[in-house]
Amino acid sequence: MPPTPSVDLSGEAGWLPFDAPSLVGESLRFVSGEPDGNRFRVRYYRDEEKHLHARIWFGPETGGPPGHAHGGAVSAVMDEALGLAAWAAGYPIVVGNLNVSFRAMLPLEKVVTLESRVVSAQGRKIMVHGRLFCGETIYAEGECLCITIPGR
C-alpha cells in the first residue's frame, strides 16, 4: 500500500514541539516510529504547564470495525502517550497497568488529539490520565499506573 498523502499534525497555540525519541529512545518505534506510514502518525507537544499533548492520525493499517480504528490500536497509542507523559514529567517508568475506556468508534484517517497529565506520584507509583478526542467527541479515556525504574 503506498503511503497516504501528508497529514496536518500541527499543535495548538502555546504548544511547543516535544522530541519524544530523544527522551526515551527507540522504545517509541512501535506506534510513532513511521512518521509517514499508513499505521499511526504522531507528533508530540508540551504546553506551558509541561503537560504532554499529541496529534495523532490513525491510518488504514489500524483498522478494526469497518472504517474505524481497532481498539488495540487505540490502546497502543494510549500506552505510548501516557507512559511518555510520565517520562516527560521526569519519571523514568514502565507501565504497570493501563485501563482504556472506549467512548466512541474512531473513524480511520482522522486526526485526533490526545491530552495527558500526571495526576499523582507516590513512591514508585505514578498515575497518569489521558483522553483521545476531536472537538466535543471523546473516543477513549485512559488511566495508567506507571512504576519508576530503580536506578534511573
Rank of each mutant, 00 (worst) to 15 (best):
L16W: 13
P17D: 03
D19C: 00
D19G: 01
D19I: 00
D19H: 03
A20C: 10
A20E: 09
S22A: 09
L23M: 05
V24A: 01
V24S: 02
V24R: 02
V24Y: 01
V24P: 00
G25M: 05
E26L: 15
E26F: 13
E26P: 11
S27E: 13
S27Y: 14
S27T: 15
R29S: 12
R29A: 15
R29P: 10
F30M: 12
V31N: 09
V31H: 07
V31P: 05
S32Q: 04
E34F: 14
E34Q: 14
P35A: 06
P35Q: 01
G37D: 09
G37K: 01
G37A: 03
G37F: 06
R39M: 15
R39H: 14
F40G: 02
F40H: 06
R41W: 07
R41C: 07
R41L: 11
R41T: 07
R41F: 04
V42W: 13
V42T: 12
V42E: 12
R43C: 11
R43E: 08
Y45E: 07
Y45R: 04
Y45M: 08
R46L: 09
R46D: 05
R46N: 04
D47R: 08
E48H: 13
E48D: 15
E48Y: 14
E48Q: 15
E49V: 11
K50A: 11
K50V: 09
K50L: 12
H51A: 11
H51R: 13
L52G: 04
H53A: 07
H53W: 10
A54N: 11
R55F: 10
W57V: 04
W57H: 03
W57F: 05
W57Y: 02
W57A: 09
W57I: 05
F58I: 10
F58Q: 06
F58M: 10
F58C: 08
F58S: 06
G59T: 08
G59W: 04
P60L: 14
P60D: 12
E61L: 11
T62K: 08
G63C: 14
G63M: 15
G64D: 05
P65S: 08
P65F: 08
P66H: 05
G67F: 01
